[in-house]
């Protein structure tokens, strides 16, 4: 059992998140995908920290990521609500009033 398994887990989760972000058109799901990606990064941070235990910077970074992710979710959901009020939908493809 080494770090490889953790890194693999982290990068696969990151990839799943990225796939979700790139393929789904529902803003809420896209936001959740981003949360998955951020969590995947946290796994990597914490795993690395475990193998370099002279300090806790990896874990501390993960704390910050969690805090930022929460703040990001707040702003993101606010924008989603504003979008929903105007468009009555949460599908990003509906965003076509631009580019013409």
């Amino acid at each position: 059992m080494g770090i490889g398994e953790y890194l693999a887990l982290g990068s696969i989760l990151f990839g799943i998140g990225a796939t979700g972000f790139l393929t789904r058109r529902n803003v809420l799901i896209q936001l959740m995908s981003i949360e998955i990606m951020l969590n995947a990064v946290n796994v990597v941070f914490v795993a690395f920290n475990r193998f370099m235990p002279s300090n806790h910077m990896g874990q501390v970074f993960a704390f910050f990521v969690i805090a930022v992710a929460a703040a990001e979710a707040a702003v993101g959901l606010a924008i989603v609500i504003a979008f929903f009020r105007l468009k009555k939908t949460v599908v990003t493809d509906a965003g076509d009033s631009l580019r013409n």
Partner: peptide, 28 residues
């Protein structure tokens, strides 16, 4: 295309990272 691209790049990433397991220290 997006899904394939994302999964492909991720698997490359994962593979590379796992391969370099040997270089890394074991869990202290």
């Amino acid at each position: 295309l997006g899904a394939v691209g994302a999964l492909l790049s991720t698997s490359v990433l994962a593979f590379t990272l796992v391969r370099h397991d040997a270089q890394l220290l074991p869990i202290p």
